[in-house]
Design a protein around this nucleic acid. Structure first.
Lengths: 123, 123
DNA sequence: GTAGTGACTTGCAAGTTGCAAGTCACAAGA
DNA sequence: TCTTGTGACTTGCAACTTGCAAGTCACTAC
């Protein structure tokens, strides 16, 4: 029984480990939205991919649990939250940047990200 | 109706587009195995993450359909195939490289990839 | 004939996703 | 007071996906 297996992971491989957290169709889409300034539940719902509320709720909770985002109250009655990326979350930026690069090169009809997005550097 | 939506995609965003293809827990694990030299069905089954045969079959078919891998017969009776990465598949290397970097930095107990892996450059 | 090998395929239970409606805790307005 | 609106979820359910485990197929070797 390896250390990685003891903590519930499939293996100690860093790729597989990353995919345990963000290896689904939605988590990095939400990360994109945060990277581009969205903070609130309704803003994420507005994205063109049309995520559903139950998936969004589930993923935000996962991202909080894994330390990718912070929940910050922006009003108290009723209590409402904004979500912002931690350093750990922001550090996934190069992953999505490389995904942008790949799709722009190999997949037809993808949007061009702003120059600022591709020029940005991560911590 | 945008061009992207007509082709069945959630949106034209390159990140979302990439995730339509590799946004699951297994596809990039298989890509890792191919990047490190594995070519045959039984070799992928041997990986520490213990993928199941039905998922492996499904993902290999998807990767072939999307042009990430080529199926090459290595024997004719019975017909058996090896799988190798196309340029399109290989070009996902920086994505998994950045995942390695991220997990090694933020997740405890992950393996260190070989220096050669992190030093490698993609086309 | 039997046994072994490699590459799948199949049956099934559990889990996940997407759709759509509903609920909750407020605030604002009549 | 009541009604309406807002934003953030929650819920019910059908369809789909995943993981487990066994089975099947097309060979070869003995």
């Amino acid at each position: 029984m390896t250390e990685a297996k003891r903590s519930g992971r499939r293996s100690g491989c860093p790729i597989a480990t990353t995919l345990e957290i963000v290896g689904d169709r939605w988590t990095l889409v939400i990360l994109r939205d945060m990277l581009t300034g969205k903070t609130r539940f309704s803003q994420f719902l507005d994205s063109p991919e049309k995520i559903t509320t139950n998936i969004l709720t589930d993923r935000l909770a996962l991202m909080e649990r894994e330390g990718l985002v912070r929940k910050i109250p922006y009003q108290l009655r009723p209590q409402r939250f904004e979500y912002s990326l931690t350093d750990k979350g922001e550090a996934l930026f190069p992953v999505v940047q490389e995904m942008c690069r790949w799709a722009n090169r190999f997949m037809g009809d993808t949007w061009r990200p702003p120059e600022s997005f591709m020029a940005r550097r991560s911590a």
